[in-house]
Write a protein that binds this DNA or RNA. Structure first.
Lengths: 344, 344
DNA sequence: TGTTAGCACTCAATAGTTGTGAGTGCTAAT
DNA sequence: ATTAGCACTCACAACTATTGAGTGCTAACA
């Protein structure tokens, strides 16, 4: 048997055991529980090596070993076998979704619930972000003499309201004209760089109206670039209390404090670069507050365009194989539901 | 000295002490700290009486006394002296508000922050609810052939979007006609009982359009009656960890779980009947989850109409006098700011 | 040379023990 | 009526074994 392979086998066993028990795992237990065919003493030697290589850590001299973030990384990339969803779970999920067809927000919120229920971790789900490519229609509504309401509607059915203050009084004819121009710009998909290329459209506007339009465009840009419109659904925050690594009140507090700032959560979930499933383990996280957590995220799509993110956060000792399996399945379902909801 | 008055004096001292220390207070400490002019033994006798009367409780035989909810009630109603805001705090508040003029949501969210910062309790703040009396304008926007977007705008500047699915295709002329009728109904403030009295308005519509209108009205009613549009801003959830009464993880968990359901929070804050300041102490709460908490709420108004609620939640051993003082001042400021924001 | 049994040592966690102090209620004296 | 004095209670903190799962090292073995 290749020496390398044996080390990996031992590492794999340690990780599995630690994920299940949260107790530092020792050589004797390991030999007893997993039929590795070698004695505790040999395992001890291998463990010492693995520790030197940075895969294991020892909380104190006379305790077992605990996997490091590096170990989880190798586990996630090479060792683990993604769990397949079983029939019962599959049906549970379908049932949970049943009552929520038709409204995107409800579907996303329900997804978050399902995630936390089935994983016992804390779940997050983001509604789609508005982006320039997805704008379908812009409507300007007069509010008061010097205030207009801009309603931006995306192809995905996301609606955003922005109140715009203006210097002068405007009448509704002007608004309609400007609305038309805006929507024409949208049709030509050049709303963000309109200045260079669309003089022909602007011809219908007089000087005053052009100025107003010029004021409105940056507001649209702003609206698209900020996260205010994204809703964050979250469930199972207090699940972290179930994990011994958070029985320290200070840590629990830090974790829960995160949840007060939507922005941080959005940033956290948006940091995964790939489409598909993204795993960030402990110290790999950019944010200090989650350096002892792992984050598994997945995206949902419509026609190949990424709309939003869902994810699960928990201790680094996370059941990666189970969560990844679940997320795989769930994004499939979600994509399907989103498609049906938004196209119908 | 009247015997009644002496008892009250002792009770007052016990409550003040317990609010400050969270420790059961005994006769000796009481005599030493507060110059009551009587000996510990006398105090003991009085305390025994007060316990019998239901104002005090004894965690165990050989410990001091703890005030009951009934005691806090009498404290809040008769004994306490509402604390006046001091200059430093006042200026802090003004500074905190400074950067947030102009947007109602920001002002409310900032209020929540101020509340939790200055009290060290958990704060809540609700944005205004939509109600029929406050609708200013309704706009129907075509989304897809069989979908329309209804934008409801209130006098307070609150905007709500509702997507409406309809059976048939509709053209934009129909939408404009119906919009006009709706807004005419609003002007006559009879949108919710339109059937009886407004036949003259309906004359402009043909049969098909009337059916559509009849479908839309209940959706408006629904939208007005449900809480979906209310935003709940909350800060300082983890402040409860500072209180010894929540060092029991189970209790902390129960408390934090509350915060996942917006509906519960809205219900909680809306339960106060009076305008002005409302105090609910421990077991007076209707909801089990907050039976060990006290809730102090206040409302903010515009032109005499209550728009929303702000409040603070914490252990029954709350610094009522300080919080009430702060809320008094804060609602004043808030009303002023709201007025400026919404009228300008 | 890799593997393993044996041994002395480490250290967190648990349970038992004891002392301390703030509290009480009761009684008798003021 | 008030209070000093006294015996009693009980949570809490500090201390002291005891236990047990773990280690590293060494020497013997295949």
């Amino acid at each position: 048997m290749d020496i390398r392979e044996r080390k990996m086998k031992i590492l794999h066993a340690i990780i599995k055991d630690y994920i299940a028990t949260a107790e530092p795992v020792g050589s004797r237990t390991l030999a007893k529980k997993y039929n590795l065919g070698i004695s505790p003493a040999t395992i001890r030697n291998e463990m010492a090596d693995l520790e030197e290589m940075g895969f294991l850590e020892q909380p104190h001299t006379s305790s077992g070993r605990v996997p490091s973030d590096k170990a989880y990384r190798i586990y996630v990339d090479q060792l683990m076998k993604v769990e397949k969803i079983n029939k019962v779970i599959e049906e549970t999920i379908n049932k949970e979704y049943e009552s929520h067809v038709g409204e995107l927000d409800k579907i996303i919120s329900q997804t978050s619930k399902i995630l936390s229920n089935l994983t016992n971790y804390t779940s997050l789900a983001l509604t789609p972000q508005l982006c320039s490519a997805s704008i379908k229609h812009i409507q300007l509504v007069p509010l008061q003499e010097d205030k207009i309401l801009m309603v931006i509607i995306s192809k995905e059915g996301v609606v955003r309201n922005v109140v715009i203050n203006i210097d002068k009084k405007i009448n509704s004819d002007t608004l309609i004209k400007i609305s038309n121009v805006l929507n024409e710009l949208i049709r030509r998909s050049s709303i963000l760089q309109f200045e260079q290329e669309v003089f022909d459209i602007l011809n219908v506007l007089n000087e005053e109206e052009r100025i107003l339009l010029r004021d409105i465009i940056p507001i649209i840009k702003d609206t698209l670039s900020n996260n205010d419109g994204i809703k964050v659904y979250t469930n199972g925050i207090t699940n972290i209390f179930n994990f011994p690594e958070f029985k320290d009140l200070e840590k629990a507090k830090e974790f829960i404090d995160l949840w007060e700032q939507k922005n941080i959560l959005v940033q956290l979930l948006s940091s995964g670069t790939d489409d598909g499933i993204n795993i960030t383990i402990g110290s790999e996280n950019k944010m200090d507050e989650v350096r002892e957590c792992s984050l598994i995220t997945a995206t949902y799509q419509l026609n190949g365009r990424t709309l939003g993110t869902i994810g699960v956060i928990g201790p680094t000792r996370m059941e990666y194989s189970r969560v990844v399996g679940l997320l795989n399945h769930l994004t499939g379902q979600l994509n399907e539901l989103v498609k049906r909801t938004l196209i119908d």
